[in-house]
């Protein structure tokens, strides 16, 4: 499977220009014979939206931008980020990721963990998603995550327990921390890679992380997108801070091989985890 990573810098609050940017990169990915192209979090709108979040929300069933992207998905699978407002429940808007394939919406994941502290204020402008659900993407069962979701390891666990062999995280992660003189990137970049390595190895899954670059309101997005193999080996690392497009060959057979070498998947007991969690939650609520 050939996966294209589009480490781009969307224009803040200009979906039309961003749609054009997407279509350009999609054409590029198609010409490079990629099977899937992945864009960063909120790639159709930019990240620091504040009140614009509600104004730029799309209904995937009606949006003209979705129509164009659905057309494009006849030649290649797409993952991108947008603000979703559901047709049957208007009002709340979600920080969402869509997976489109062959002219259809295969899945929409609404970000569950909205960072709302320090420099982040997502909880002020977005409603939180309520589930992690892997889906059949044709070649491989796939799980979608949006940025901070990935740093809560329960999210990836749900995809693993649900049988995903490919976990895709789209991200708009700012770089922070420059006090390690010898590290090539920000301290926070190391944090994402640490999680990528651990999740890919212990889930025996391909882990794809597509982060954005560029600046918004003083924050710098760190880039550094990557792919880890099901053996926990880094097979792609895009540069920090620079815009970059890369197509990476990923061997999906490695998922089965890894799961034979390290039978974490075979030996997993989600029902035990579930029962334990249930007890923990019940007890905590009885306090």
């Amino acid at each position: 499977m050939k996966i294209a990573l589009a480490q781009i810098s969307p224009v803040l609050g200009d979906p039309e220009r961003n749609l054009k940017l997407h279509l350009d990169y999609i054409r590029k990915a198609v010409s490079r014979k990629a099977d899937l192209v992945v864009f960063p979090e909120l790639s159709l709108t930019g990240y620091t939206l504040k009140d614009l979040a509600a104004e730029l929300a799309l209904n995937p069933r009606k949006s003209p931008a979705f129509k164009k992207l659905l057309e494009a998905s006849r030649s290649i699978d797409l993952v991108f980020g947008f603000v979703e407002e559901a047709a049957d429940d208007p009002g709340p808007v979600y920080n969402a990721a869509a997976y489109l394939s062959r002219g259809r919406i295969l899945h929409i994941h609404r970000k569950v963990f909205l960072p709302t502290s320090g420099m982040f204020e997502e909880g002020r402008f977005f409603a939180a998603g309520r589930q992690f659900r892997p889906f059949d993407a044709g070649k491989v069962k796939t799980g979608l995550l949006v940025c901070r979701d990935f740093l809560h390891y329960g999210s990836s666990y749900c995809h693993f327990a649900g049988g995903a062999g490919l976990i895709i995280t789209i991200s708009a992660a700012p770089g922070r921390g420059v006090d390690e003189p010898r590290s090539p990137g920000f301290q926070t970049s190391r944090m994402w890679e640490l999680m990528g390595e651990a999740v890919s190895f212990f889930s025996s899954a391909v882990v794809v992380y597509c982060n954005r670059v560029g600046y918004e309101d003083g924050a710098v997005f760190a880039g550094g997108s990557f792919i880890y193999s099901p053996f926990g080996k880094k097979i792609a690392q895009l540069p920090y801070l620079d815009e970059k497009f890369e197509v990476i060959e990923v061997d999906l057979q490695e998922i089965g091989r890894a799961r034979k070498s390290w039978p974490f998947r075979r030996d997993e007991r989600p029902e035990v985890i579930w029962q334990s969690l249930e007890k923990i939650i019940r007890e905590n609520h009885e306090d």
Partner: peptide, 20 residues
């Protein structure tokens, strides 16, 4: 309090270019 100087220069020059 030591800083990664090449990374700081890259980030700040990018900031000046893009924000200008």
């Amino acid at each position: 309090m030591k800083i990664n100087l090449p990374l700081v220069v890259k980030t700040l020059t990018g900031f000046i270019r893009e924000e200008t």
